[in-house]
Design a protein around this nucleic acid. Sequence first.
DNA 1: CGGGTCATTGATGCTCATCAAGCACAGTGG
DNA 2: CCACTGTGCTTGATGAGCATCAATGACCCG
Lengths: 252, 252
Amino acid sequence: MKQPDPEDAAVAGTSSLCPTCVEWRCGVGSLLTPDEARQIAAVSVRRQVPAGTELMATPNLRDSCIALLRGVVKVSRLLTDGRQQIVSLKSAPDLLGAPFAPPGEVSVRAVTEADIYCVPRHAFEAVVRQNRGLEHRLHLRALEDLSEAEALLLTLGRKTARERLATFLLDMAGRFRPAEIGKRCDTLDPAYDHDTLDLPLTRAEIGDFLGLTFETVSRQFAALRRDGLIDFSDARRVSVKDRKRLRSAAGT
Amino acid sequence: MKQPDPEDAAVAGTSSLCPTCVEWRCGVGSLLTPDEARQIAAVSVRRQVPAGTELMATPNLRDSCIALLRGVVKVSRLLTDGRQQIVSLKSAPDLLGAPFAPPGEVSVRAVTEADIYCVPRHAFEAVVRQNRGLEHRLHLRALEDLSEAEALLLTLGRKTARERLATFLLDMAGRFRPAEIGKRCDTLDPAYDHDTLDLPLTRAEIGDFLGLTFETVSRQFAALRRDGLIDFSDARRVSVKDRKRLRSAAGT
DNA sequence: CGGGTCATTGATGCTCATCAAGCACAGTGG
DNA sequence: CCACTGTGCTTGATGAGCATCAATGACCCG
């Protein structure tokens, strides 16, 4: 399944990755055993893509799953007039597009530069059939995704703009601590400030995630800052100043 | 696993069910083979519950899955101040609460009178482990639920009230044709009017599903009626008068 | 008949979208 | 080196869309 591919050349350029973590990365977290990870890697093509790349662009890719090794990716649904709703934010190490799932009418776009494995869907499915227990783990992962989607439904359906932003910040905290974007080797380093995060998204993308306009996102951030719940060192780096009040601002 | 239960007495009261369909009903659609359905039934307790019953009320039930044999059930997430978002509407025959899923912080409430099987989670999981292929079908079902949730995310995040109502009506059409609420034996009867449906939900519940107030639901229904897209014979019975314009009103 | 739930409709106001202007910054090419 | 341009962010002014509050009618049931 592993075809020689010009994209493979890009692998050389990714040697800045922590070498001791490569296998773990290939493992997409705890989803795969090392052996399963090797089997997946054997049928995959590795690529490095710049920020903004649409990953479901070609029919070839539409029939693949994507293992995200580094970077952040947004999964969106679109209306014909251009309105867009981000339905899921994925960060390494995670899997995009479940095997057995019909491709679905979504857009999948890299938010940051990203390293990915493209896994042909039918090859992935063959690996799943050959490894007892893997489908169970995929099933659990799908149920977690469903639960996350339901939490976002509550946010979009019933929360105010301020509550949405507070919810979003609490959600992002812990996922995007500074200098961790695209680097996960340091997860166990206790020196990190758990209350500071680097937002990988623009204001417009945050709006697309929360069902708001980018102006409203900007204004509500300013309001939360005025109220002393958070602070910004620059537009993308937020510090949670008062987690208790931020939680209460999120409406539980 | 089958305990003698006072609720079993209620079974006698459900003999109005089409007898030829009982097994199919137990099968929760195409999810279960007849044999699997029998195994599930053997470890379950059947109950009939009135409209409005909270199904996750007791710890006992919280640790069960529910096979919905007849009726409509809403799955909601709640905010502490009482705001509510319906994240999923289930109608017979369907399954509520996946095996292996952590119980989750949801409310599950019967919208209509309903017949259910309560399946202890661990017993269900044992059946899954003993039937190759069943987990695969549950996995596919979870992925479908996820896709539905994403579609609702787009609706809540990016559509206007009018678009939400149009989307909702198109979604309900085909699910709730008249006289089919709680009766599924007649699915193949071609005499039914595919453009008329009986809404199982109150205006307030539709609002909780679409992230609107009941007044807005009522007003938008009135507007769609004025515009000739739909008509009401009574508050719950809708006819789609112009499916093409309704689709365009739904924003695709 | 009285009280309950459900639905409709009107009046009013708040929240957030829209439109618009200006600033900071990075990249590009003269 | 410095306009020139594009992108991202902030802030202000205005208005639309929907929530809120309130009154009323239909229906059902004890």
